[in-house]
Computed example of a mutant assay.
Amino acid sequence: MQPLPTSSPVTWGEQEPRVPHVAVARVSRADFERRWGPPHWSSTQDDGVDPTVSWGWRADCGLLLTVSFVERTGAFHVTVREDELDHALAHLDWWRGEVVWRFDEATPRLRDGWAVYRQDDTGNVHDVCVMRNRAHAECLAHRLESRAHKQWYSVEARGTAATRRGL
């Protein structure tokens, strides 16, 4: 399964995530372009902003994300809704230490929502993350399971169930 559609980048406008970058990664730009193709757009204004090239996608599961390469720093910046960062990194196949900064490094993780959890071949269960969107949690579990050996991933509801007032 192709993690992101390389032949049909997102046309930005109202769809663009209106959030700051939430992670920084260091990978070879040449390797990134071999995998994902040429940038979808660039920003080379001489207005004090670093020249950047960017890619943008809407994954089959509905996830919207952008990745921008900042030439001055040689780093990739990931822009996605904060609660979708783990999901975005799974689509990018960034598992092995490519990420050098995350906005949420010192922040407690979500506790209510859809938990993606892993069970290894000895029966040990470990939470990976909790997400607000069930379809995105299931997509992440599928992506993780497709690369794991002797492990399986699943999704379950977590947190306090909503109650109806006045009953």
Rank of each mutant, 00 (worst) to 15 (best):
H21V: 00
T66G: 03
V53Q: 07
C61H: 12
T52K: 02
W55R: 01
G13K: 02
Y117C: 01
S54M: 05
N133E: 10
Y153P: 02
H91R: 00
N133R: 13
Q15I: 15
C129R: 04
A137P: 04
S54R: 01
V128K: 02
G74M: 03
M131I: 11
M131W: 03
W152I: 09
Q45R: 14
W152L: 06
G166D: 13
V22E: 03
C61F: 04
W57T: 05
T11L: 04
E145R: 08
N124S: 14
E138N: 08
C129D: 09
D60V: 13
P51W: 12
V100H: 00
H136Y: 12
E16D: 11
V19D: 01
R81L: 07
L92A: 04
H136C: 04
S42P: 00
A90H: 04
H149E: 15
C129M: 03
G113H: 02
G166R: 12
R29T: 09
M131L: 15
D127Y: 15
V53G: 00
R111N: 10
A88L: 06
S7F: 10
A135P: 02
R72E: 12
K150Q: 13
P108M: 13
G13N: 08
H136G: 09
E156D: 09
G74P: 01
R34I: 03
V53K: 04
L89G: 04
H126E: 15
A25M: 06
K150W: 14
Q119T: 15
D104N: 15
W95R: 11
P5C: 05
R81Q: 10
T163H: 13
N133G: 10
C139D: 13
E84A: 15
W101F: 09
R143A: 09
L65Q: 02
D83C: 06
F32R: 05
V99L: 01
H21Y: 14
D50P: 08
R35Q: 08
R164H: 15
C139T: 13
G56R: 02
P3I: 08
V155N: 03
V155K: 02
A115R: 08
E145T: 05
D31H: 02
G166M: 11
R18D: 08
G62D: 08
A88D: 01
T79W: 01
L144Y: 08
